[in-house]
Design a protein around this nucleic acid. Structure first.
Lengths: 137, 137
DNA sequence: CTAAGTGCAAAATGTTTGCATACTT
DNA sequence: AAGTATGCAAACATTTTGCACTTAG
């Protein structure tokens, strides 16, 4: 953690551009590598993982760990970001595997509650709610 | 999923006994293997993983995926269980790594809210809240 | 020039699988 | 006897690492 990039390399730029271009889609490190392989941008897998990690630390992208055995996924959230309003909750259906994004005022409050009552500063970006979605019931 | 055990084997019993004996502690599959290795109970790693998975499906133990890169951990919750009152929330500190258990009325309501407003049936056993704990701030 | 980033291939980690054998029912 | 579980080792998938080389500042 806290491994922010210090040099501006072409690989870093290309990576950001790609993430920006698929904005709001969640892509895995594998997806990114695959994309670069197919479009001829030769960026090593290790670099993808390393840069992805540092971009997370810089707040340019978010990392979501949806479930232990599938790869983590990443999402562009903006270079001048940390706009707290942008954060959305993630609901993962245990049945169909779908990942739902949810903006909800009321849910926002649980962060405040956890903080005030339990001294716990919730990180909505890392937190995923598991359950069964509407369609699957 | 849904791979409940059909035969009652000695390995299954020994596994349950062990999980019961460390009740309320979270142990990883690795911990379990290690324990069996050191105490002479020769149970293969594959069996540990297979039985752990089926015990989860039977509701005898719970599985928590704390974060993508560390192993999942398991906790005994009882053979005649599924007592809904037992469910507690899990808070994971991203800094010190501590895993906190939390019983909270108010939090219980978010399940109801998600269900009524968003048609999502929350599974509190699988859901882990990430953030920074009291001590680490 | 120096610190940081890159690519490659190899290692590490946690979990799953194929298959022959052994155990439950 | 039929069906399931076990043990072993090998396979997997994702992510990390070591090291020589290149690049940005």
């Amino acid at each position: 953690m806290n491994q922010r990039s210090k040099y501006k390399t072409s690989q870093r730029d290309i990576l950001i551009d790609y993430l920006k271009s698929v904005k709001s889609d969640h892509v895995t490190a594998g997806d990114v590598c695959e994309h670069f392989r197919s479009c001829g941008a030769n960026i090593a897998q290790a670099t993808v993982y390393r840069r992805l990690e540092s971009l997370v630390d810089e707040g340019i992208i978010n990392k979501y760990i949806i479930d232990g055995n599938s790869p983590a996924c990443f999402e562009y959230v903006g270079e001048n970001s940390h706009a707290p309003g942008e954060a959305c909750f993630h609901l993962k259906c245990e049945k169909c595997g779908k990942l739902l994004h949810l903006h909800c005022e009321e849910l926002d409050q649980i962060g405040g509650h956890l903080f005030k009552e339990h001294g716990f500063k919730l990180d909505p970006l890392r937190t995923v709610f598991y359950g069964i979605c509407d369609e699957c019931r």
